[in-house]
């Protein structure tokens, strides 16, 4: 079932802040890359390359589009880096300290701890705790089963607690 363009634009604007945060989470908190991914995702939605299925709500659908676009973007960038950058100049894009800068110590600690989790666990943590989605909705966004999402949720939460407690001890 399609949605009228005007209502799609309204939905995009309404969810823009959450979509940007999710794009940041999918891009290892690289702001520039997140903005590119978000624009590419909006373009897909507006020109009809991403089609809304009635099985999901608009927010989880948008998040799914952003996740897939970020993955495509990452593959494309990796390919470009391999083809055009000499080996010595290759750097880890996620290790940009400016991108990791956060206002409070607590947020900086959370971001650095989240970065140590496996990607799936990190994404589930973000969707459930940051975006206030249910585990079922998180599973829908990530295209995985509910059981798998629940496993990632439990393991991610446990690991996050352990790491945050370890940092408290230090």
């Amino acid at each position: 079932m399609g949605i009228a363009r005007a209502s799609v634009e309204a939905e995009l604007e309404r969810n823009h802040a959450d979509c940007f945060a999710w794009a940041m989470a999918c891009c290892g908190r690289d702001r520039n890359e997140a903005e590119d991914v978000l624009q590419a995702s909006y373009l897909k939605v507006l020109d009809g390359r991403a089609v809304f299925g009635s099985r999901s709500n608009v927010k989880t659908w948008l998040f799914g589009v952003i996740r897939r676009t970020a993955a495509e973007h990452r593959r494309w960038r990796a390919l470009r880096r391999l083809r055009f950058t000499p080996l010595a100049e290759r750097a880890d894009p996620s290790a940009d300290p400016a991108a990791m800068l956060a206002e409070s110590d607590s947020s900086a600690r959370l971001i650095s701890t989240l970065a140590t989790l496996p990607e799936r666990q990190r994404q589930v943590m973000h969707l459930v705790f940051y975006q206030d989605l249910t585990i079922a909705q998180a599973a829908e966004v990530l295209g995985i089963s509910l059981g798998t999402a629940r496993t990632h949720y439990e393991r991610g939460k446990q690991r996050l607690r352990e790491l945050l407690k370890l940092e408290d001890v230090r």
Partner: peptide, 24 residues
């Protein structure tokens, strides 16, 4: 954990770029 994420969310929302539609 929820409080930490909520704080991060508030801080992130202060730096969200303005919404603009992509040039079709």
């Amino acid at each position: 954990l929820r409080e930490m994420f909520a704080r991060l969310r508030r801080e992130d929302h202060a730096h969200v770029p303005p919404f603009r539609l992509p040039a079709a």
